[in-house]
Design a protein around this nucleic acid. Structure first.
Lengths: 142, 142
DNA sequence: TTCCTTGCAAACGATTTGCATTGGA
DNA sequence: TCCAATGCAAATCGTTTGCAAGGAA
C-alpha cells in the first residue's frame, strides 16, 4: 500500500513528467479540500503564479490525477480523480455556487448504478461513468 | 391548453419584456434541438449577432424559459426549462463533448427521486432539483 | 413619446501560450 | 548536460456591457 503521493508520482512518471513542488502543492491542497477548487481559489491559497497553476492542473488532468468539474459561470474546478478521492457525488448551492462532496452509502450507490444501467440500456451509448448533482440551497444561503 | 410560444409570451410579459423575433428564433431553435446548445452553436444556426444572442439567452433564463447547462471547456449551453421540455437527464460524450437529452422512464425516475431524497436526508441541505449526467462515448466517437 | 431592444465595438474575466530562464535527474 | 518546468507578459476565448440607433406599444 502506497501513499497518495507515491501513486501520483508513479502516474506522472508513466507520462514522463516530473512531480514538482508546485504540482505537489496542488495535489496536497485538493486532498484536504471538501469539494472541487478553481485555479483562482488555489491561487489564493497557494502562492503560485496563476499560469503555473493552470499548467499544473492541465498536466495533472492529463495524467488522470485530477478531474475537472464545470460549474457555474464558466469556472472550472478540479478535484482528485475517482481512484484517489473515491466515488462520490456533489451538492451544488444554486445561490452561492459552492460545491460539496457527498459520499453515498454503498447500498444507495449500488441502486444508482443499476438505475444508470437501466437508463443507458436503450441507448447506443457506452457509459463510462455517471455524476449525480443535487441542486439546492446550502446552510449559509438558507 | 396553450402552445409553448404562448406560454413563453406570458412569462415574458409577466417580467415586462417583449417576445421579439430574435427571442422567438432562439426558443424555436432550442425547441427542435435534442440537447442543450451554446451561444456559438445558435449563432451558427441563426444569423443573429452574438451579443444579441447572449442578451436573449440572459433574458430567457431570467424569465425561467431557459436553463443553463455548464459543460465542457467552460461553455454554457442552454435548453428549455423543465416545465417546457419535461424533466430529463443528459448523456455526455467525453470525447466530443456533445450533450444529448434522455427522457427517463417514469418508474425509473421515481426511483431516482427516492434515491436523491435518501442521499440528502442526512445533509443540512434543501434539495431543489437533481441532475444525472451519464458520461460515455457517443456513436460518432466510438 | 417612452421604453425596450438591437448592433457594434470595446471591455472583461477565465484560461492559454510564447519565450527566455531556471532547475532537476 | 539536457529537457522539462516556471514566470512573466501577451494573446485568446467565451461572455458582458456602453452607447447610439431602431421599434413596438
Amino acid at each position: 500500500m502506497q501513499t497518495l503521493d507515491q501513486q501520483v508520482a508513479q502516474r506522472l512518471a508513466a507520462s514522463g513528467v516530473r512531480y514538482t513542488s508546485g504540482r505537489r502543492a496542488v495535489v496536497k491542497a485538493l486532498t484536504s479540500a471538501d469539494g472541487p477548487r478553481s485555479a483562482q481559489e488555489l491561487f489564493d491559497e497557494l502562492d503560485l503564479p496563476l499560469s503555473s497553476l493552470y499548467r499544473s492542473l492541465a498536466v495533472l488532468e492529463e495524467s488522470e490525477v485530477l478531474t475537472p468539474h464545470h460549474g457555474t459561470r464558466g469556472v472550472t474546478r478540479y478535484e482528485l480523480a475517482e481512484w484517489a478521492a473515491g466515488h462520490h457525488h456533489h451538492v451544488v448551492c444554486g445561490s452561492c455556487g459552492t460545491v460539496d462532496d457527498v459520499h453515498v452509502d454503498p447500498a444507495l450507490e449500488a441502486e444508482l448504478e443499476r438505475l444508470v444501467a437501466a437508463i443507458t440500456d436503450s441507448l447506443s451509448f457506452q457509459p463510462t461513468g455517471h455524476a449525480l448533482e443535487v441542486e439546492g440551497r446550502c446552510d449559509a444561503c438558507r
